[in-house]
């Protein structure tokens, strides 16, 4: 059980790191959203899965309920994270944050 859990947690941590590096390295707000909005949600779902599997190691009704709760959090993150990303992007476009473009595109 713990080996399978580690198999989920380690890639999750890797994608968390990628998301964080992304929001530090990308040149403008919209590209940062890409990294933050989904690498992070995918990573947290992976880690949550890993913790849920680890928790099932000693199988009782209570630990089963806790694992179901953790999966509920994962489902919620899966629905809520794109919605939040969508809301932030739309308000950024309405307010008029300048997007970063390729130089040859800017001239057009």
């Amino acid at each position: 059980m713990s080996a399978i859990a580690a198999l989920f947690v380690i890639p999750g941590l890797f994608f968390f790191a990628v998301g964080t590096l992304g929001i530090l390295r990308f040149p403008d707000f919209y590209t940062r959203l890409q990294a933050a909005g989904k690498c992070d949600s995918f990573a947290s779902v992976l880690v949550l899965l890993g913790i849920a599997i680890y928790n099932l190691g000693d199988f009782t009704l209570a630990s089963l309920l806790v694992s179901i709760k953790i999966m509920l959090i994962a489902v919620f993150v899966f629905i809520a994270s794109p919605t939040a990303t969508h809301a932030i992007t739309e308000s950024a476009l309405i307010v008029g944050v300048e997007p970063w473009m390729r130089k040859e595109r800017k001239k057009q």
Partner: peptide, 16 residues
């Protein structure tokens, strides 16, 4: 909006 985004990212990590 960058700050809001940063706060959101920290919040996701806090849940885990």
């Amino acid at each position: 909006l960058d700050r809001i985004l940063g706060g959101n990212v920290i919040g996701t990590k806090t849940t885990v």
